[in-house]
Nucleic acid binder design. Structure first.
Length: 315
DNA sequence: AACCTTGTCAACCGCGGTCCT
DNA sequence: GAGGACCGCGGTTGACAAGGT
């Protein structure tokens, strides 16, 4: 036995709302509120509509704080940044944009913004929050240094998130750097990120040795002894826009973003494995955690960086 | 001018989660 | 604890407009 329908579909009006219906709904809600029961509302208000339809109409169109009209460049960047990080959780993304609804954001992404990203008209911030004052909040995103290209420029197409198997395959399933890491670093589509020096050092443990993260110009990393069979090509991390605090800039070439990159470095599974802090993309919002915690996590999950490159699949 | 294609966006649908009895 | 009622969400649809042929 399935769930009973929320309304009698034969006796409710469907399709576009008329101005009269809008007026009735708006007037009723302004006088009585929704009283927490949308199903009963249309009958009380005298509307021949399904309660869900009333709710949608109010939330997406009639609410007084709804912002109608085009999206700003800053809104574009917030959407791109969050989509890159959390995917199609439109309600969460919309909650970060004043006056926008999840439906608005979803439609905007599907019809316009996705194309802008693909054609390279938008690139995400390259130097977000270089401020030395960390903020505990990750609910706001500074876009002050973001760049938007008004003339289309060639850019690599969107790629799916890098799954461990794919990455392993890309690297030849072992210590074979058939796809040098530097090909993934510095690609112009990705979402440039920053890594705390101590984290970078830690992440490379067993894979590479850190040459120098404190310099102001560039950082070179080469495979460690454990990876002696790998290519001897040094891996260059773009540090040109790094500030004097020693942060290291890096980027990925796919929508997997920071998590995928961290996987490449051997941190293991992507996603929220790091409890959110290890994959923060705004250094200003990340406090200098003790990344040695990750050793415990690795141990608990029986995963080590080296295992990744030996083709051991993570669960 | 007529037809076709593409883009846009409001609205619908169904599912999972939560609350209440 | 079970089951019903409702809410909220994300995916999808369909009507309409605009642009192209």
């Amino acid at each position: 036995m399935g769930r009973a329908p929320c309304c009698d579909k034969a006796n409710v009006k469907r399709g576009p709302w008329s101005p009269e219906e809008d007026a009735v709904l708006k007037d009723y809600i302004e006088r009585h509120g929704t009283v927490g029961n949308w199903i009963a509302l249309p009958q009380k208000a005298g509307l021949k509509r399904c309660g869900k339809s009333c709710r949608l109409r109010w939330l997406n169109y009639l609410r007084p704080d709804i912002k109608h009209g085009g999206f700003t460049e800053e809104e574009d960047l917030v959407i791109c940044t969050l989509y890159n990080k959390i995917g199609s959780r439109w309600s969460v993304i919309a909650s970060k944009l004043q006056g926008r609804t999840d439906n608005d954001v979803k439609n905007y992404w599907n019809t316009k913004l996705k194309k802008k990203v693909i054609t390279g008209q938008i690139s995400l911030p390259t130097n977000i929050a270089t401020s030395s004052s960390p903020s505990p909040s990750n609910s706001t995103y500074s876009t002050s240094t973001a760049s938007i290209h008004h003339s289309p420029s060639p850019a690599p197409p969107l790629q799916p998130p890098l799954l461990p198997a794919t990455i392993t395959q890309a690297y030849g399933g072992g210590a074979d750097f058939s796809v040098p890491l530097e090909k993934r670093l510095g690609t112009n589509f990705g979402f440039p990120q920053k890594l705390y020096p101590e984290m970078a050092q830690f992440s490379m443990m067993g894979l590479m040795e850190q040459r120098d993260f404190s310099g102001s110009v560039s950082v070179s990393v080469s495979p460690s002894e454990d990876m002696s069979a790998a290519s001897s090509s040094p891996i260059t991390v773009d540090n040109s826009s790094s500030s004097s605090n020693g942060y290291v800039n890096w980027s990925t070439d796919g929508v997997g973003g920071d998590d995928a990159f961290l996987s490449e470095l051997g941190f293991g599974p992507t996603g929220d494995f790091y409890g959110g802090y290890g994959s923060q993309e705004r250094m200003g919002e990340v406090s200098p955690y003790d990344y040695s915690d990750l050793a415990t996590i690795w141990a608990a999950n029986e995963t080590k960086p080296q295992e990744f490159y030996q083709g051991v699949a993570y669960s």
